[in-house]
């Protein structure tokens, strides 16, 4: 299976490991990521305003490109995933936004939300399958206690993201099990890391960080995994000294593709 791949800005700079290891693992698991040509930054946050379309256009271009290749659009960064999936939902369901975006873009064929947007994790679960993944594991992460951090972007709004139960998700825990490690479930795993507040309210983000990491540490985790570079930035330097990794880093270890 070939996926149109939207890496996003941060995966080309600060989060190169998230991207590089994802590509290595994909090759090992038998699916292909073909980077979209000339992709543009998704904007980082889903633009909620009903009266503007400019902030949605980069997502629509990527979605239309995937449609032209008749492929699902795969993302890795939680933020890109959230933005593109929500914009796709707007293009499918909001006639006003759809009309205005198409009127502006003048694409060869109008775009109406046809592309399926999938997260790398969903491919692991729904296409590869965790049973098959388990068989592909060369170095089971035996004894490792891994806490999955979902944050907000992967799960909410649940009706649009439709990846997992937004209040009691299991996709990353199932991945952790498949890699041979023990998942650590803790209540703060779907609460926000402080997000974009970390530029001008570092104190507020520190409170969020400590609450989340302490919650995971209390349940005895030895590391936290995430899919989002901003979550990584906000959680990484924590008082509990719990290492935070991209889930692809752990996956690459388990699959022995380093």
């Amino acid at each position: 299976m070939v996926y149109s791949y939207f890496p996003g800005c941060t995966l080309k700079s600060k989060a190169t490991e998230l991207d590089r290891k994802a590509r290595l693992c994909a090759a090992a698991l038998g699916f292909e990521l073909e980077e979209i040509e000339n992709w543009q930054c998704c904007g980082g946050v889903y633009p909620m305003a009903k009266d503007e379309i400019a902030t949605k256009l980069s997502s629509v271009r990527a979605l239309a490109d995937a449609k032209a290749h008749d492929r699902p659009l795969l993302t890795l960064c939680s933020a890109c995933h959230n933005v593109i999936k929500q914009v796709n939902n707007d293009m499918l369901k909001d006639a006003d936004i759809r009309t205005r975006a198409n009127n502006y873009l003048q694409l060869d064929e109008p775009y109406g939300g046809e592309t399926k947007v999938v997260h790398y994790l969903e491919v692991l679960r729904d296409e590869v399958g965790f049973d098959a993944l388990k068989k592909a594991v060369k170095n089971p992460l035996k004894g490792r206690k891994v806490a999955a951090y979902y944050g907000c972007l992967l799960l909410r709004p649940g009706a649009v993201m439709a990846m997992d139960d937004p209040e009691n998700p299991s996709i990353m825990e199932d991945l952790i099990k498949a890699m041979g490690a023990d998942p650590v479930v803790y209540p703060q795993r779907n609460e926000c890391c402080g997000g974009y507040l970390s530029l001008d309210d570092k104190e507020a983000v520190a409170k969020r960080r400590n609450k989340i990491v302490k919650s995971a540490a209390d349940f005895g985790c030895d590391c936290i995994i995430t899919a989002c570079p901003l979550c990584m930035y906000n959680l990484a330097k924590n008082d509990c000294d719990v290492p935070v990794l991209y889930f692809t880093e752990l996956l690459a270890q388990a699959l022995g593709v380093e």
Binding site: V45, A79, S198
Partner: peptide
């Protein structure tokens, strides 16, 4: 600081 933060 990730680019994502500045964009957001």
């Amino acid at each position: 600081t990730p680019q994502q933060l500045l964009m957001s």
